[in-house]
Nucleic acid binder design. Structure first.
Lengths: 261, 261
DNA sequence: TGGCTATCTTGATCCAGATCAAAACTGTAG
DNA sequence: CTACAGTTTTGATCTGGATCAAGATAGCCA
């Protein structure tokens, strides 16, 4: 097996870019961990924050290592993944813009975080962030809220991994991406919607607990059934949203905020 | 199929017992959500708290319903479970004494919480708890810490559900119970240790994403290999802890605090 | 003590998804 | 345009765990 689509060592040094933007202009300002913060708190964060870009395949945090940074995804998609000794791999979370990466209050990362698209992060030094966190209830409150949402999403995913069929798994996955593409608010998914797929087939397989071949076959099946069209390998067009929802089985109707991570 | 080992309606009215103990004497005082609280905070909680007992099979919270209570498990084991429309069921978390049940900041429960043994809970009215939470940073800090631990455990479980074989799954499960039985501190698992299993075969199957028959066969296999002995259906004796750890595959070496929930 | 019922084990067979193998695409560098 | 390397699709076969079907075991109550 090749090292996989999510290569650990692509040799790309991440770009460092310090404080080019002020928080007020930030695209994720109203959804990120800082969204409850007062101007005073924000000023504190602004002093410490810095930006960094990652190429696809670059590791943002590494399982088992002492993580020195944590922060929010501004743009791009990050996969959280765990790997068994023999190389079997499971993606245990997808992280989208405004979501938070990193575990305050525990230095050792329990999983890898790998950029699956070009990623831009708003980062903090871990110990500095923890110090600010301890003093700022709004920040802590928002972080708690976000972690509770992620926990719900993780449990929803456990149901998928433990009990759903391959068709249900891929349909659920496409439904999530569709909801995200459809609107950040609660708009339903309309037929004809084109949904970009930011993952390779291999990454999808690792997310769904399947093989790459099964994922490919399920895509073909959904196309044959006229549920979706496949204009390219990195996008689908929803032809029958109702049927896709049915195929996905129950769940996800209500997971409002953080769909997958 | 029968309604399963985890029956929703066993007709048992939960016992109500108000404030029989003071927090200072509480067995889970040093591990629960209140463990960082000052005496002043504790007094607030003590005013609001009440105890309730549940028989095996009783629902503590119900998926989709507006939950009015949340709180800590004092004694017993609770399963968090999600069910698909056709009845397929997945246990998405096991909750042990000192763990917290319920989602502050969201009224609708995303899963059932069902007692699998006789359970004693220390409960709070949800809105009252939220009010106290908003004012007491120590409580919020501890809750955040616990939710982060649960999130790590949930992701570890996603790896198991998505990628591990039946043997690895059952071995991992027994390893977790063994660690918990061995010591609440970090003591290693010794050969000869008798580990009680608080779940029926059906509940184990629902936790591991397997069928009851496969679970039973894996038990028999582990016995045949002299890895464990089965003195009764509700306990195992560890004969070869090293081998059990190997069979479990990687993971769980470091999950210190909250093993499963 | 002996049925009765629920739980668990074991055996036989089946099948969804894995594995093995080979085309068919899709860039992209020369 | 062409060669090459990575990705995706499709086909053929295999297999781990599911499903179907009996038994075995263990409470528990009459």
């Amino acid at each position: 097996m090749s090292k996989g689509s999510v290569r650990a060592l692509s040799g790309t040094t991440p770009d460092f870019v310090y404080k080019p933007h002020c928080c007020a202009d930030c695209a994720i300002r109203h959804r990120a961990v800082c969204s409850y913060s007062t101007p005073a708190e924000l000023a504190l964060l602004e002093q410490t924050k810095f930006y960094r870009n990652y190429e696809p395949g670059a590791e943002i945090v590494t399982e088992g290592e002492n993580t020195k940074v944590l922060g929010s995804v501004i743009d791009g998609v990050v996969a959280l993944q765990k790997t068994l000794a023999d190389g079997r791999r499971q993606i245990v979370g997808l992280v989208f813009p405004s979501d938070f990466i990193g575990r305050p209050l525990r230095p050792i990362a329990p999983y890898d975080a790998v950029a699956v698209t070009p990623v831009r992060m708003c980062l903090f030094d871990r110990s500095k962030f923890e110090a600010i966190l301890a003093e700022n209830a709004n920040l802590e409150r928002r972080l708690l809220e976000m972690m509770l949402d992620e926990l719900d999403a993780a449990r929803e995913w456990m149901l998928l991994l433990g009990r759903k069929t391959a068709t249900e798994k891929l349909s659920s996955f496409l439904m999530i991406l569709s909801r995200r593409a459809s609107a950040l608010n609660g708009m339903p998914v309309a037929n004809g919607l084109e949904v970009p797929i930011p993952l390779t087939r291999e990454a999808i397989a690792e997310f769904l607990g399947l093989t790459i071949e099964t994922v490919s076959r399920q895509f073909s099946l959904l196309r044959k059934r006229k549920v979706v069209d496949l204009p390219s390998k990195r996008a689908v067009i929803i032809l029958d949203a109702t049927e896709l929802q049915t195929l996905a089985g129950s769940g996800w109707e209500d997971v409002s905020t953080n769909a997958v991570a």
